[in-house]
């Protein structure tokens, strides 16, 4: 699944974002991936029966307001056999990543091919308190 790190806007430093809630639109039972926690990275499982998945990221601002952005990933799922140790899985080619900009400044795709090897695929830039 794609791995996304949070970065401070205009910097190359990874940041920790507090009070974040993350869930996928259409997930069975409205399953929450991250529930009001401080995180510096997100692993976003993608649906294999379709070519698009949307994630809602709710941030708490410095004014204690909750603001939500929607992250949309368009991709091509690929059936894949990695090895006897890792087994069979799906890998993905990210084709387009977009987001709203209520809090998120921008999103950068650093590695469009998503495999079972842990590597950063997305950078989500957010303004920090100092900015």
């Amino acid at each position: 699944m794609p791995l996304a790190w949070f970065y401070g806007s205009g910097t190359t430093k990874q940041v920790t974002v507090g009070n974040v809630t993350v869930y996928a639109i259409g997930a069975p039972g409205d399953t929450v991936l991250v529930n009001n926690q401080s995180v510096n990275e997100l692993s976003l499982p993608l649906r294999v029966s379709t070519d698009r998945t949307q994630w809602c990221l709710t941030f708490m601002t410095t004014d204690s307001l909750f603001v939500t952005d929607t992250l949309t990933l368009a991709y091509r799922p690929i059936e894949y056999f990695a090895s006897v140790e890792c087994g069979a899985m799906y890998v993905f080619d990210l084709q387009q990543v977009t987001s709203t900009h209520n809090v998120i400044d921008s999103v950068l795709v650093t590695q469009p091919h998503v495999t079972n090897v842990e590597q950063v695929n997305l950078r989500i830039y957010v303004p920090t308190a100092q900015q």
Binding site: A24, A27, P45, R47, V48, E79, A88, Y90
Partner: peptide
């Protein structure tokens, strides 16, 4: 050939696929 069964607990997806003639 590879016959595989895939499942994802978050999306509650289960699917079988076959890679034939690799």
């Amino acid at each position: 050939d590879v016959d595989a069964h895939y499942s994802n607990s978050y999306w509650q997806e289960q699917t079988d696929f076959t890679l034939r003639g690799e």
